[in-house]
Each structure stands twice: as structure tokens, then as C-alpha cells.
Amino acid sequence: MPTVREFQVTFDCAEPERVGRFWCEVLGYVVPPAPEGFATWEEFDRSQPPEEQGSWFACVDPSGEGPRLYFQRVPEGKVVKNRVHLDVRVGTGLVGEERLAVLQAEGARLETLGARRVLLQLADEENESCLTMQDIEGNEFCLD
């Protein structure tokens, strides 16, 4: 039987800390403690060579169950649709109008953080409603 492995989800982005803090708000994630010998992450960042300062950011699920999220600065901007995206499960177990209301409310909350609505897919005979959005750098994700 195969071993289940831990994994992290990595985002390529222009502003790692800004995007990472957005996702902390979306998911309830936290910034882990600064490395040993440093009082803060800012202090650690200042100790790095200038070209590496601000080049990455990470956050974790405080319960320890979800994957670590890692954000790395890349020189190129996003130009096409993501091949992989996150589904943020805010409507699990809900159906119909109740589910739609939860999706709409969470979408509105995320818009105040800088997210953008892309497409609301209403329930049909096979699927419940889903709201496609973009984070602050245009990465698509779904509220489902």
C-alpha cells in the first residue's frame, strides 16, 4: 500500500507576502514562528542577501491538517488560466439557496480583501452552485 505523503502548495507570484497574507485570511492560516535566532520574520528577511529579501513567504494551517502554502517571487506575470486551482470548501453539505447564500457572502468577504468574482455557476441537475474567483494576483480559485 502506498504511503500518504505530506505536500505543500506553491504559488508563483510577484509579491509573495501580500499574496500569502491574502490566503491566510481566506483559509484561516497563520504565519509560522520565525526561525530560531530571529525575533520576527522581518528580522530574518533583513539578514538575507538583498536579492533574496522578500522572495518568499509561507503560511500553515494552525490545526496542522492542511498543506503548507508557499509563495515564491517569479519575474514573469500570470498570462494564462491556472492548470491547478484551489477549491475553498465553504458550502460543504449545503444545497440550493442556503448554499448559494453562503457562497455569495464568502465571495463578498473576499472581495473586500482584493479578490475578484469571475463566474457564478448555478446549481443544475448534477452539480451544486460554485463561485469562481481570482486572488489578488489573478490566480483562479473556486468557492464550492
Rank of each mutant, 00 (worst) to 15 (best):
L94Y: 03
L120I: 06
Q53D: 10
Q121I: 10
V95P: 01
E125R: 13
T132W: 09
L119F: 01
G138C: 02
E52F: 12
W41H: 15
R109S: 03
E51M: 15
R116P: 00
A39V: 14
R116M: 05
G37H: 14
K81E: 15
Q53E: 14
L69H: 03
D45R: 15
G66Y: 04
F38I: 10
D135Q: 04
L103V: 03
V19W: 02
V19Y: 02
E126H: 09
N139P: 04
N127R: 11
V102K: 00
E15I: 00
R117N: 03
K78C: 10
A101K: 02
G54P: 06
P75G: 12
L103K: 04
D124W: 10
D61I: 11
G114M: 00
R21A: 05
I136N: 04
G107L: 06
G91C: 10
D61T: 12
D45K: 13
L100C: 03
D87M: 13
R116G: 00
M1E: 15
A108D: 14
Q72T: 07
L100G: 01
F71W: 06
V95W: 06
F22V: 02
R21G: 03
E106T: 04
A34W: 15
N127F: 13
K78V: 11
D124N: 13
E65T: 09
L103A: 03
D45I: 09
R5C: 00
D144V: 09
D45Q: 15
N139R: 05
V31P: 00
W41N: 13
R117M: 06
E25A: 01
A115W: 00
C13W: 03
V102G: 02
A34F: 15
G28F: 08
M1D: 15
A105T: 08
E52L: 11
W41F: 12
E98W: 05
V26Q: 00
W23Q: 01
A101L: 10
G54L: 11
C59D: 14
E98T: 01
C142W: 02
L119A: 01
V102Q: 02
R5P: 00
C59F: 09
Q53M: 13
G66Q: 09
G37V: 13
V80P: 01
L122I: 06
L27I: 07
T3Q: 14
C142Q: 05
